[in-house]
Design a protein around this nucleic acid. Structure first.
Length: 169
DNA sequence: GACGACTCTGTGATTACCTCA
DNA sequence: AGTGAGGTAATCACAGAGTCG
């Protein structure tokens, strides 16, 4: 496993520590609490800019960028790992939100279609003699291009035909 | 207002494990 | 088959901002 102390920034860096304490050990001799490094705005900006161009770095690019940022290559590597992971998580969250909304509209559509099915059933029950003389072929159930609803075409004796919901409206 | 305790969020770092050359 | 490099996923740890009594 990689055994690098990445909490120890190279001397003379612009890395901001929250408090100045260069010791590796606490006064009582125990292990020093892990300090959290914060990148400067400029470091973050350059990292971000590089990330937008390419989400992964080859060893040469990593080395060059680390030199430019006055960070260890390992720190640059970690930054890119985290950046990839977190942008993927953000993307997944956005997709999740999208699917939720899509589910909502599909549910709405489903409700409307169920209602239409009920209406069609009602028509079928209300007009059995007409249907018995002129049984509806399956092709009579079509999508109306005008209102984008499922329609039943009703054929009359004089040759005209109507869509049921046009008659009702 | 200012304070301290607490919570939340963002992010640097670590670890375990996986994949591939 | 074994190995090392580099990736992801999960998690830890800390800083800083926000909130509240």
């Amino acid at each position: 496993m990689k055994e690098l102390d990445i909490n120890q920034a190279p001397s003379g860096t612009e890395v901001e520590y929250m408090e100045e304490d260069e010791d590796d050990e606490s006064p009582n001799g125990g292990p020093a609490p892990r300090k959290k490094l914060r990148l400067t705005k400029e470091q973050s900006r350059l990292l971000e800019e590089t990330f937008l161009q390419n989400h992964t770095l080859n060893p040469k690019e990593k080395e060059t960028l680390a030199l430019e940022l006055k960070l260890k290559p390992r720190q640059v590597e970690v930054w890119f790992q985290n950046r990839r992971a977190r942008s993927k998580m953000k993307q997944t969250e956005m997709e999740c939100e999208y699917l939720k909304r899509w589910f909502g509209t599909l549910t709405e559509q489903n409700k409307k279609l169920q209602k239409e099915v009920e209406e069609l059933r009602a028509i079928k029950v209300a007009a059995p003699p007409l249907q018995s003389r002129h049984p509806l072929p399956p092709s009579a159930l079509t999508m109306c291009p005008r209102c984008e609803r499922v329609t039943t075409t009703i054929h009359l004796d004089n040759g005209t035909h109507y869509h049921h919901h046009h008659l009702r409206s």
